[in-house]
Computed example of a mutant assay.
Amino acid sequence: MRTLVATALLSLVPGAVLAAGHSDASTFPNTCSNTSFQYGADGGAEIHATCLRADGSPNQTSIAIPAIANNNGRLEMSGDVASFQKSCGNIMLETNIDGVTLTANCRTEAGTFEETSINVPGIGNSDGTLSN
């Protein structure tokens, strides 16, 4: 148990440093599990996860996905808030040690759908809470 807590504490520090810039890879997968995409009450795009606090206890948490948009069937960073969820379906998050990839089937201007993906930047775990 002490090893787990020590690992969680060490993993939280880089997340706090990286969270300042959105261009940095998301680090929360190092100390979070059960990660999923969900629609918020306002229709916004959210990441939900169970993250470890510094004391090793789990915490259910969520955060709005940063400014990702659908540009003619391709996901890209754009605007202030995520809008891709309004024209994309089959939305999935893949987490690994290197970060988070968002994959979706997005509508093109021609009305067809393209499978596309993008790295989700700048989200870390701050004492059991997803933060950017």
Rank of each mutant, 00 (worst) to 15 (best):
G43R: 04
P29N: 02
A69G: 09
G79Q: 01
L18P: 02
S11F: 01
S83P: 05
P58Y: 06
P29W: 00
N71W: 04
N71C: 03
I68M: 11
L9M: 12
G43S: 13
G56L: 00
A19W: 01
V17L: 09
A16Q: 09
S33N: 14
P58Q: 05
F84D: 04
G56K: 00
T31E: 12
N30E: 11
D55L: 00
G43W: 08
N71H: 13
N70R: 01
Q38C: 05
C51M: 05
T61N: 02
V17G: 00
A54D: 14
S57A: 13
A49D: 09
T31S: 15
S83E: 13
P29K: 00
H22L: 14
N70D: 03
Q85W: 08
L75T: 00
S62D: 11
I65A: 08
L10V: 03
A20Q: 13
P14G: 01
N70F: 05
N71Q: 15
I68D: 02
S57L: 05
V17S: 04
S11R: 09
Q60W: 03
N34G: 11
C51L: 04
G40Q: 11
R53K: 15
N59E: 11
N72E: 01
T31Y: 00
G21N: 14
C51I: 04
N30Y: 08
A49S: 15
Q60D: 11
T61C: 03
I68W: 08
T50E: 14
G79P: 03
M77Y: 14
R53D: 10
A49E: 05
V17M: 04
G21Q: 13
T31N: 15
D55S: 05
P14Y: 00
A16K: 07
I65M: 08
T35I: 15
S26E: 04
C32L: 06
E76T: 11
A64P: 06
I65P: 06
T31K: 01
Q38G: 06
Y39Q: 15
S11A: 03
P14I: 00
T27E: 07
G79K: 00
N34A: 15
S26K: 02
A25G: 06
S78K: 13
H22W: 13
A54K: 06
S78E: 11
S57G: 11
S57Q: 10
H22D: 12
S11D: 12
N59Q: 12
S57R: 07
G21A: 15
H22P: 10
V17W: 03
G15M: 02
N34V: 07
N30G: 12
G56H: 01
L10D: 09
I65F: 04
I65E: 01
S36H: 04
L9G: 12
S23V: 14
L12I: 08
F84P: 07
N71S: 15
A20T: 11
M77Q: 14
I63S: 03
G79N: 03
L9T: 09
I63G: 02
I68E: 03
D24F: 13
P66F: 05
